[in-house]
Amino acid sequence: MNSLEEVLSCWKQYDWEEKLKKVFKKNVKLVDERIECLKNTREKTSIWKLTLSDGQEFIPIVLKIYKQPLKENHRLEINMYQKAYNIYQEFMPKLYLLEPNVNGNETWMFTECLQPLRGQIKLAPKHLEQIIPTVAKFHAITFDKRFLQHADLFDSSLPFFDSEEKVKERTKGIKKAKENLDLAMKDPNLKELVAPRYKMIKKILKKGPNFFPEITETGQCLIHGDLHVHNICCEIANDGVENWKVTLIDWESAKHYPCWYDLAVLVELLIDFRSDWQKSEEEIRRKCVQVYCQEMLKYGITFKEDPLNLLKKAYLQRTLEKKLSSHLQKVLDGGKSTLLKRYLEKIEVWGKELGLY
């Protein structure tokens, strides 16, 4: 666990003030009393918000400290900044410094501090139309065979949907879902919710681990992998700005996957959480898919199958391979899940619509 004293000590020891002076092309000083710890865990990462001053204005920056031994997702994010930043910098925070071997074996990374989308505006369905063009542009760079042009930018830490490791992971998740469904039938808090769909879902799970091969066949690319609103930043987000400058943060979950996984998180999870959106959910997802396809067409990309079905299939694949088991487990352990009911309902409705049972 990193401490404030350690941050201040390393700041002086590694002369980061002088290095950042070259980055900003002006003298900057760290404002000690405005250092803020955003996250600090012993085994994972430590994240700090630092404030610099040039004597006239304050400049916030983010410090992210990666501890050894590096987990695969941390190595992946470092790799994104070390090697892939040149082609993805439009979508990422500005990288100021990346310093390895701090305190012996830690990596310290200084990046731009961006304005989160949340807090700037009350998110409405129409605002997704401002975010999706950036997502499409990002996807298009490595879509399908285009990935081969940039494959050398990624090391073994990049997960691939079709890899043996990921197939095993999905198989394990489906096995766990079956076990948790059986336990749910004995649990008074879950039986009433699960029982009407129990046989149907067990039947569907037998078709795994890849329920819809077509979502991979119609195109894979580098995806963000965790595209919820907490990881979306915007320079100015209001209805008076026509084209938002959208940037994505937290690249630990990037992977080479079907592009629709990102849309399933961005669009469908927002609908699942927002009960006020659910009355018009069909209209919302149809519009989002339309905008995405229009943007992808600008880069010469089209889809062989109905894109709306591809979104639904990606959502179901994601749910059946992992999310169903984890949310059942959460309730079995005595917690609550606001998403479980929605997962079960969509498996039932979309599963029938898409021929899973």
Rank of each mutant, 00 (worst) to 15 (best):
H230L: 06
C10F: 00
K39T: 12
E268M: 15
F160K: 07
F24E: 12
C288Q: 02
K336T: 14
E18M: 06
A124W: 01
S157H: 11
N73F: 07
E36N: 14
L98N: 13
I61N: 08
K168A: 15
E179G: 08
K287R: 14
M80A: 15
L193G: 05
K39N: 14
G300Q: 11
V167A: 14
I223D: 11
H150F: 15
I132V: 01
D276I: 00
D144Y: 12
K94V: 03
G240F: 13
N40C: 11
L340E: 11
I35G: 12
A136T: 08
D32E: 15
E242L: 12
V229H: 00
K312S: 04
E72A: 12
L8K: 14
H327K: 13
Y96A: 11
K137H: 14
D226R: 06
G351D: 10
I65P: 04
K322V: 02
E33Y: 13
D262Y: 01
I301D: 09
R42F: 13
K126E: 06
E33I: 05
P69D: 09
Y292G: 06
L356T: 11
E57Y: 02
G55N: 03
C221F: 03
M109Q: 11
E57D: 07
F24D: 11
I236V: 15
W244F: 03
T134S: 14
F58S: 14
Q89D: 11
E321R: 07
I87S: 08
D239M: 07
P258R: 11
K312A: 12
E282A: 13
L148G: 04
T247P: 02
F273R: 15
T319F: 03
D262A: 01
S9Q: 15
E5D: 08
I59K: 09
D306S: 05
R342A: 04
A136R: 11
R285P: 00
P188D: 13
L153W: 02
M92E: 05
R318D: 13
H224V: 07
V289L: 03
